[in-house]
């Protein structure tokens, strides 16, 4: 591809695009790993509150789960924009739904963060 047009097109940027891709790549590892440990490596019946206590006594898993929470909610927030825009043609409806989504995501983040802070210290 000629350098001339790539040089000029390089000024096009998008935070949404980068967010979705960056969080997505991280999530592929974090989420599948989380699922693997809680469902495959350990049978789900064994993941009771004592399992949780043991898991969160290790800094690795606390950081893992915290990152998982943050990345997942960022990813959903960025991707939801596209979904809502594709399904809600009305500008008012779009803004209302997007605002509602942002509130929900913020609430979920607070819930998850509080859980980690209270339980894992």
């Amino acid at each position: 591809m000629p350098d001339q047009d790539t040089a000029r097109v390089r000024t096009a940027r998008s935070g949404t695009y980068l967010t979705i891709r960056a969080t997505g790549v991280l999530l592929a590892v974090l989420a599948l790993g989380h699922f693997g440990v809680t469902h495959i490596v350990n049978d789900v019946a064994a993941t009771d509150s004592s399992f949780v206590a043991r898991r969160w006594s290790s800094a690795l898993w606390v950081v893992w789960d915290a990152l998982l929470l943050a990345m997942a909610l960022l990813h959903v927030g960025a991707a939801m924009g596209a979904v809502v825009r594709d399904h809600c043609p009305g500008r008012g409806a779009r803004r209302a739904v997007l605002a509602g989504m942002r509130v929900l995501i913020a609430a979920l983040f607070v819930l998850g963060a509080l859980t980690l802070v209270v339980a894992a210290g």
Binding site: M1, D5, T6, V9, R10, T11, A12, R13, S14, Y17, L18
Partner: peptide, 9 residues
């Protein structure tokens, strides 16, 4: 064309 426009990022 759309991929090339995206490539700029």
């Amino acid at each position: 064309s759309i991929r090339r426009l995206r490539r700029g990022r």
